[in-house]
Deep mutational scan, measured.
Amino acid sequence: DHDVVPEDKFQETLHLKEKEGCPQAFHALLSWLLTQDSTAILDFWRVLFKDYNLERYGRLQPILDSFPKDVDLSQPRKGRKPPAVPKALVPPPRLPTKRKASEEARAAAPAALTPRGTASPGSQLKAKPPKKPESSAEQQRLPLGNGIQTMSASVQRAVAMSSGDVPGARGAVEGILIQQVFESGGSKKCIQVGGEFYTPSKFEDSGSGKNKARSSSGPKPLVRAKGAQGAAPGGGEARLGQQGSVPAPLALPSDPQLHQKNEDECAVCRDGGELICCDGCPRAFHLACLSPPLREIPSGTWRCSSCLQATVQEVQPRAEEPRPQEPPVETPLPPGLRSAGEEVRGPPGEPLAGMDTTLVYKHLPAPPSAAPLPGLDSSALHPLLCVGPEGQQNLAPGARCGVCGDGTDVLRCTHCAAAFHWRCHFPAGTSRPGTGLRCRSCSGDVTPAPVEGVLAPSPARLAPGPAKDDTASHEPALHRDDLESLLSEHTFDGILQWAIQSMARPAAPFPS
């Protein structure tokens, strides 16, 4: 592969990997390779389809078979030569091979799209000592099968071997295949498990690692696999990028399955594409389908809103127990993405979901129960707010008499603000006073009005108090039968009158 990737590009890729991570280095090298001529790309395919690569990765054979028959990708048995050289000459001794072996032994695996480039050397060096003999053996194999790289107009793939297949390693990572398949204008990513390549439709969760975000852009890794992070704060999961590491605690105790298979379609829109997988259930989501939507993949363990709600429900009964003089119970939860139609709101002032922060849900004790107040519409209280300059209440639009249902020339009671006709409430011909108009209920007259088809109010509507207090003497005590009587009149003013009279009014101040 030294004929494909020059030394300066190799060093530039290593520097970019240390600065921005393996995914960015892979993407940059792939983009550079696509700008080369067809001879360089053909050399790339020839390096990929060597015999030892085909033996190690069985899924490469179907890719090789898909090439046109007129494309010669065979390799000479006596060494490598550029395709432009007409004579089959043995190339001179390859010093770059020693360079590659020494550099890969030092860096474990470079971040390139060629056999030198995919593992994360920093994480491997940190986690190597417990498994040094086995990992050293794996390093000797890295130059042979560490990076199976493929690129063409139909298929483009980048393979990364790992030393996680050490025997006896619980939940060992089998390997990473960062794979971009450009077929019919689409893009897919796969993962390699035990020599087999699994596409998103049959993606397997190998051991402790999972394909957290099938994305090839942005600074985030394709698999949430930063070796420096180790395990999740809650004892979460091992990262795919942690090559040759000792077994780590796999999943939280509440995880239903340690080796679950995540779905390959969004649980909201039932469509495929780039998904984020939940650590607590097999569901996966688009970032845009979450509520609120996320802009980037959160670091650490992530769970959907259903799993978060289940966790909150487990903690909430203990938080609601009476604990005198104790601060509110704080339950730190990872930043969760909410699927459509589901929402768990945190306290005000918290950062938005999706940031690399930890939301704190506070379970406050329930407030003391209070008697429910009568629910009145805002339009129902409008007549009470229509007060004239002299303190006389004006008529609201649409006000109707509670007896006849007519809204023409209605009066407004100064005591309960109900609309009424003087002739309907006082049919006996009582003279109307000039000021202080009161309806039949507030004036103490319980004589029913002779209106055909309208039920008369119940005599129990009024329960006047002592006459010594004029204001308190007109406080009506309405009961269920009074409400039914008012409802039978089918008037809004009657219902409003009952609601206003049912509310307690402050006692009249004593004259000074």
Rank of each mutant, 00 (worst) to 15 (best):
470 D>H: 08
425 H>T: 12
467 A>F: 09
291 S>D: 12
452 E>A: 04
429 G>T: 04
460 A>M: 13
369 S>R: 10
421 H>N: 01
379 S>K: 08
395 L>F: 11
278 C>D: 07
360 V>Y: 05
443 S>F: 13
470 D>K: 04
439 C>V: 02
425 H>E: 06
261 K>Q: 14
308 L>N: 10
355 M>Y: 01
496 L>S: 01
447 T>F: 14
257 Q>H: 10
408 T>K: 14
272 G>H: 03
473 S>Y: 14
401 C>Q: 03
483 L>R: 03
453 G>D: 06
437 L>E: 05
479 H>L: 09
341 G>H: 07
329 V>Q: 12
245 S>W: 13
373 L>W: 06
295 R>T: 07
484 E>V: 03
330 E>S: 11
266 C>E: 03
432 R>D: 05
321 E>T: 10
285 F>Q: 14
280 G>K: 06
456 A>Y: 13
468 K>M: 03
277 C>E: 14
312 V>P: 11
391 G>P: 13
451 V>S: 08
273 G>V: 06
254 S>Y: 12
441 S>K: 04
502 S>R: 02
440 R>M: 09
242 Q>G: 08
244 G>E: 14
465 G>Q: 09
249 P>H: 08
263 E>P: 07
428 A>Y: 12
312 V>S: 09
467 A>S: 12
451 V>R: 08
326 E>F: 12
402 G>A: 12
319 A>D: 11
378 S>V: 11
268 V>T: 09
297 I>E: 04
311 T>W: 11
394 N>F: 14
284 A>M: 07
411 L>Y: 07
255 D>N: 07
248 A>H: 11
487 L>F: 07
483 L>D: 07
281 C>R: 08
456 A>R: 04
471 T>S: 14
361 Y>A: 06
493 D>C: 00
418 A>W: 05
464 P>F: 10
320 E>I: 12
407 G>W: 10
435 T>K: 06
403 V>M: 05
454 V>L: 10
448 P>K: 10
249 P>T: 13
459 P>K: 05
398 G>N: 08
428 A>G: 13
389 P>I: 13
312 V>G: 12
376 L>N: 04
377 D>G: 09
463 A>T: 07
372 P>E: 06
457 P>N: 06
340 A>H: 13
271 D>V: 10
399 A>K: 05
426 F>G: 08
285 F>N: 14
350 E>I: 09
380 A>M: 10
495 I>C: 02
285 F>M: 15
308 L>M: 07
